[in-house]
Amino acid sequence: MPRIAKKKINHQLAGTDWSPESELVGLEFELVTNEDVLLYPQYTIGLHAWFLDQVRSTDPELSAYLHDGESEKPFTISALDGELVSSGKQLKLFPNRTYRWYVTGLSGRVTTWLAQWMTNLPPEVNLRNAPLQIIACNVVFAPTTYAQLLNSQLEANIALQFLSPTSFRRKGHHLPLPVPVNVFHSYLRRWNDFAATPVDQDTFLAWVDEYVLITRHQIATVKVLAGKKGAVTGFTGAVEFGLAKEAYDKPEFCTMFSALGKLAPYCGTGHKTTFGLGQTRLGWSSQAVADVPNVESLLAKRIEELTDIFKGQRKRTGGDRAIEVASTWATILARREMGESLQVVAEDLQMPYETVKTYAKLARRALKVE
C-alpha cells in the first residue's frame, strides 16, 4: 500500500491553559487517508493497542501502570468519527475525508504525558496496514483539575449526549439504560480513583437514587462489539438530568452532581471506554442517536448468539470462569466466520496462536453438539 506523504501536523492550543497541574484534558486528532481503506470491525482494539504502544515507547513505567494498574483506567479513546460504511465483512474509509479520533487523560500523570506526546507526534496511526495520516491535533476538552470542576458554577440541570453505545454491568448482564444511579456511579468511580477529594459512594448514590431525575430523553439501543471479547447492548442519544427540590437539603451533593456532569466528557460513561464505548458530550442534541455500520452490528449479534449457546452448555459449571470461556470462544469463532485469520485474532486477544486454534476447534465441536 502506498505511504502517505508526511506533512507537518497542525497543533491547536490557542485559548488553552495547559498548566503542569492539569489533571484532565481531551484531544481530538484529525486523520485522513489518500486511498480507500478497509478496516476490520473490531478496529478499536488496534487503536487501543497503538495508543498504548505510543506510551510504551516513551514512558515504559507509565505503560506498565496503564496495563496492570488499578481497575479504573486513567484515559479513554473513541472509535473513528466520520464516514465509515460496511463493505462486505469489513468497514470502508474514503480518501480525502477527515476522520476524528478522541483521546482523554484523567490523571495528572497521563495528562502530563499527553502534553509531551502532543509536541512530537508520529506522522500516522497505523491500523493493521491501514495508515491514517495525522493532519491536526486539537485540544477539545480544556485542561483542568478535579478541584476546578468542583468549584465551578453549579448546574441544576445536566444534558448529556451519548455518542457511542453506552452500557453498564448489572447482576452479570448489560444494562442499556441511563438510570441516574448507574450513570453517576460511573463518574464517581473515576472521581474517587483520581481526585484528591473522594466522596462516600454509598451515601452519595443513595441521594442520586432518591433525588436525581430524568427530565427528558431521546435514546435508541444497539448491539455492538465490546473491546477485545464479547458484545454489548448499549444505548445512544441524549438525556437530561435534573434535581428534585428536596435534593437541595444536601448542597454538597448538588455540587458533586454538577461536577460529575462536567467530568463526563473527559471520562466517558459506563464500561469499555478505552475501546470506544460510552463517548459522552455536554449539551442536548436530537441528532445524538448514532448509527452502527451493519457489519459491526452483525458481528456483535453473532458473538452474543454464540456466547448464549456456550454459556448454556456450561450451566452446570457456572461462575465467572464459564462466562469468560463462553465469551472467548464466541469471539474467536464469530471472527473466524467473518473471514479473519486465527493469527490476527490471536494478536488482538493477546493469546498464543495454538490456544486460539484449539478454542476455535472446541467451539465448532460445541456447535455440532447443539
Score class of each variant (00 low, 15 high):
residue 325 V to I: 13
residue 93 L to K: 06
residue 172 G to P: 08
residue 252 E to G: 04
residue 315 K to T: 15
residue 5 A to R: 11
residue 343 Q to S: 10
residue 134 I to L: 12
residue 71 S to W: 15
residue 135 I to W: 05
residue 56 R to P: 02
residue 290 A to M: 13
residue 110 V to R: 00
residue 364 R to V: 06
residue 66 L to K: 05
residue 263 L to N: 01
residue 306 L to M: 10
residue 275 F to A: 02
residue 13 L to G: 01
residue 154 L to D: 09
residue 236 T to C: 07
residue 18 W to G: 01
residue 310 F to N: 04
residue 89 K to G: 08
residue 3 R to A: 11
residue 212 V to A: 07
residue 340 E to S: 10
residue 266 Y to P: 00
residue 177 L to Y: 08
residue 281 R to V: 01
residue 317 T to P: 02
residue 152 S to V: 03
residue 201 Q to D: 09
residue 254 C to D: 06
residue 248 Y to W: 15
residue 359 Y to W: 14
residue 100 R to D: 03
residue 271 H to T: 07
residue 56 R to L: 10
residue 68 D to L: 15
residue 144 T to G: 00
residue 181 V to S: 07
residue 126 N to I: 10
residue 191 W to N: 01
residue 309 I to Y: 05
residue 14 A to R: 14
residue 200 D to A: 11
residue 81 D to W: 04
residue 300 A to W: 01
residue 14 A to M: 08
residue 133 Q to C: 11
residue 90 Q to T: 14
residue 130 A to G: 11
residue 166 T to Q: 03
residue 282 L to E: 03
residue 205 L to G: 04
residue 41 P to C: 09
residue 334 A to G: 10
residue 214 I to G: 04
residue 212 V to D: 01
residue 46 G to M: 05
residue 211 Y to F: 15
residue 158 I to S: 02
residue 40 Y to T: 08
residue 131 P to F: 06
residue 208 V to E: 03
residue 207 W to K: 07
residue 323 I to V: 14
residue 162 F to I: 06
residue 264 A to C: 06
residue 370 E to A: 13
residue 69 G to H: 11
residue 100 R to H: 14
residue 5 A to W: 08
